[in-house]
Design a protein around this nucleic acid. Structure first.
Lengths: 227, 227
DNA sequence: AAGTGGTCTAGACCACGCC
DNA sequence: GCGTGGTCTAGACCACTTG
């Protein structure tokens, strides 16, 4: 086997590259499923799985009875396809930064000790999001050994072997409290977009609880769904 | 054939009902795929498609090598799997209501005429969301012939043959203006979760622009992503 | 070792869009 | 009518988790 990964991943990767490079221009029809089957030497199952992934990323439009067409070249800012803040900012060609407010190990009476990190996340140098994360052990100890000003905690943990099997996101809106306002440079009471996240490992055990508050004038979440 | 719909839809509906009614309690293991195949008399394909839908709705957790388990009873307010407000409310066993504030046909100078609808959406009788929708023609004329107090505009339009090929969602937070506050029974300046939607047909032509403002104490958006 | 879900094949029929 | 994607079957092998 030449390339790594499953068949449907290889097909998805190839088609993604061709869309990005303009081999399949925006608005153009993609090859039919049977043509892709012939080209990649696979059956319809992997091809369909790959196309479903591209549709979820907003890259293609699929309609019964007609060829799939290219919708755009760049995937939408995925909440659905989870991307850490730093990686997302850099993928849009901007500069990400971090200002750590607090790193602490805490133990509540009768509870396990946890590690708390509070950071201001910067977008081109401007405070755009206030992140409050709580890590359980043993992940918390890993975080204590990381320079939290240097970049993505998530990417660091992935590199250390931590598996983010599922991430639950909950979105709502809150009024900025005085602490939020001070760190983000806005008025107290101003509306903020709040994303609460719970990250779990492959056993379903939660190891990170996060409360991220975004300035809605600087960051919005977008996604495309197909009906 | 007794029940309507495709096989994977029937399987998904049955499992959804059993989770909602506690036949499969939260945290419990679901029957294996092969058991479901035997019970419903179908092959693995439809069963897997049904389970993938339930996972996307946040109802179940699926891990390789272990049985799927029940995560929760109520599906998340689906952004990823687009569900109209009325259908979502009723799927959680609550009562949806509508109070139409305004239905109007407008024409700006040098522009096509559009139809605007402003509605308060009720959750168990409580104002939970203020919806401002703008429809282009010819869809707008269809909307004018619909009793907007009676239920879902989206489901009405789908029944009339309108195709919602893709829906783009943009989420942020805004402060309630005096009109928002009055309709939703909150203080001006209170934070609201705003969802702006653009619906397009199969040709990529937009026909609906919506601005929905949710009370964050009554409705939040959740979704689960896998890393 | 046994059972689970993840992937893949090769075939079939159906619903829909287009000519 | 023809080609498209949507669904479904029956079987197979693999990766993973658990006893």
């Amino acid at each position: 086997m030449r390339p790594p990964g499953t068949l449907h991943e290889r097909v998805a990767t190839q088609v993604r590259l061709r869309i990005r490079d303009g081999v399949y221009p925006v608005g153009a029809a993609l090859p039919s499923e049977s043509e892709m089957c012939a080209e990649f030497g696979v059956s319809r199952g992997p091809v369909r799985q790959a196309m479903a992934a591209l549709r979820a990323e907003g890259l293609v439009t699929i309609t019964q009875g007609r060829p799939a067409t290219v919708r755009g070249r760049t995937p939408a800012r995925g909440i659905a396809t989870f991307t850490p803040f730093t990686r997302w900012v850099e993928s849009t060609g901007r500069v990400a930064g971090n200002r750590t407010v607090e790193v602490a190990r805490r133990r509540s009476p009768g509870a396990e000790s946890v590690v708390e990190v509070v950071r201001v996340r910067l977008l081109d140098g401007v405070p755009a999001m206030l992140e409050r994360s709580t890590f359980t052990e043993p992940v918390g100890t890993l975080v204590l050994g990381f320079d939290t000003d240097s970049g993505s905690i998530t990417d660091f943990l992935i590199g250390a072997g931590v598996r983010f099997a599922t991430i639950e996101h909950q979105l709502d809106a809150v009024a900025a409290d005085p602490a939020d306002a001070g760190h983000l440079g806005i008025e107290p009471g101003a509306p903020l977009l709040r994303e609460r996240r719970v990250s779990r490992d492959e056993h379903g055990v939660a190891f990170e609880y996060a409360d991220d508050r975004y300035r809605p004038d600087l960051v919005t979440f977008t996604l495309t769904s197909s009906g």
